[in-house]
Design a binder for these strands. Structure first.
Lengths: 208, 208
DNA sequence: TAGATTGTTAATCGATTAACAATC
DNA sequence: TAGATTGTTAATCGATTAACAATC
């Protein structure tokens, strides 16, 4: 069992990884200050974060770019490919299916579900929309490990329950719902309307 | 000037608001425990959060649903309508333009920009895609106050700069970039790939 | 050696929560 | 009154950051 990395640190590691990817090959070493700049955090934060993963840093020199990159990928579990299923083939689900960033980051969308009979059987990004009731068999046969909920609010809890039944333990939820789920199931919520509401609050603050 | 509400509290207020919206009209009062359940937090957290906005709570009774709802909407600045401009008319930008949750929450997408000449002039959700270079005039004439970046990474900083030039002070950024910007400009970042990477990390933890 | 930069400690800061008096 | 539930304090917890010895 690996050391437990604080959640706040885990959420910053991908930023460091991205920052490393933007460093030109001519530069073989980088400092915590450079990573901090790229991630928008404090240099001490970077060093503290990296201290959880036994980093390849050399005092007076910095971090070896290639080594740190490989280490971060290993720690984040990105050395293997993850297969993703998306529930909800509406505008958002379709856009996510075609989102290039997922593939770039090593994730592959392999299944797309909907309950709407007018959508089932249609093809989006060379993926045929499947009836949601087949989720169990499809998730098992395609070894899906991450489920994405891109359905309306009303369907979200039901979809989450079926995902869990099908053996999925990681869920990315775009519906504005706080999902009930058993222990051990990780849910990340992306709530687009809430993000705008938070921005709206700040407009009231700065004299807008 | 209003009291400053901690950022963590601000990000939970929309959850309480949503929870209140789901309470049937027959129930005129609700407890911190009920709100906590709906938002997935501790009841003490709810009371503490609400204490920043002088809540209409009555000891032994609870909060008046209608009053608390109105207060939260007022505090979050949701009593007025906000106009939103989206940069990037690709799959994600198109999906966001059609996202029903924005309108439900009181936000109106009034402009959609792209630099791609094959997209300019086409119509998405009855909105004509505009050339990005016209952003200044359009933002001013339509009183846009929130900008959304749904472009590829390469264009994100440039779009942010133009948004700021055009007078936008609140930005929702879907590109995986940490944007440089002047003080007083609020940016919320939604990084879809990073969310998956965080989920991937947890799969390495629980024995996946 | 002098300069640079890490790794780590300890201090600071802020957020969460338990506890309970106030009070309906 | 007894029971319920808020508002608030104080304790706890965890995250951030300044500082600096270690060391290349």
């Amino acid at each position: 069992m690996k050391a437990i990395i604080p959640a706040a640190t885990v959420s910053r590691l991908p930023l460091y990884l991205r920052c490393l990817g933007e460093i030109p090959p001519s530069q073989t070493t980088c400092s915590s200050e450079q990573l901090a700049e790229g991630a928008g955090v404090n240099p001490a934060q970077v060093r503290k974060d990296l201290s959880f993963i036994d980093p390849p840093g050399v005092r007076g020199v910095g971090y070896d770019v290639a080594e740190l990159r490989a280490l971060l990928r290993r720690e984040l579990g990105l050395t293997k490919q993850y297969r993703v299923a998306i529930a909800g083939a509406g505008n958002l689900g379709s856009a996510l299916t075609m989102y290039p960033g997922f593939n770039e980051a090593g994730f592959e969308v392999v299944a797309l579900f909907d309950t709407d009979v007018t959508k089932i059987g249609t093809t989006i990004n060379s993926l045929t929309v499947q009836p949601f009731k087949n989720i169990g068999a499809i998730v098992a046969s395609l070894s899906v490990s991450i489920g994405v909920i891109a359905t309306p609010l009303e369907a979200a809890q039901e979809v989450a329950d079926r995902f869990v039944d099908a053996g999925i333990r990681s869920i990315l939820n775009f519906a504005p719902a706080v999902l009930k789920r058993p222990a051990g199931i990780e849910v990340r919520r992306v709530d687009l309307s809430t993000e705008l509401q938070i921005l709206a609050y700040h407009q009231t603050q700065v004299g807008g």
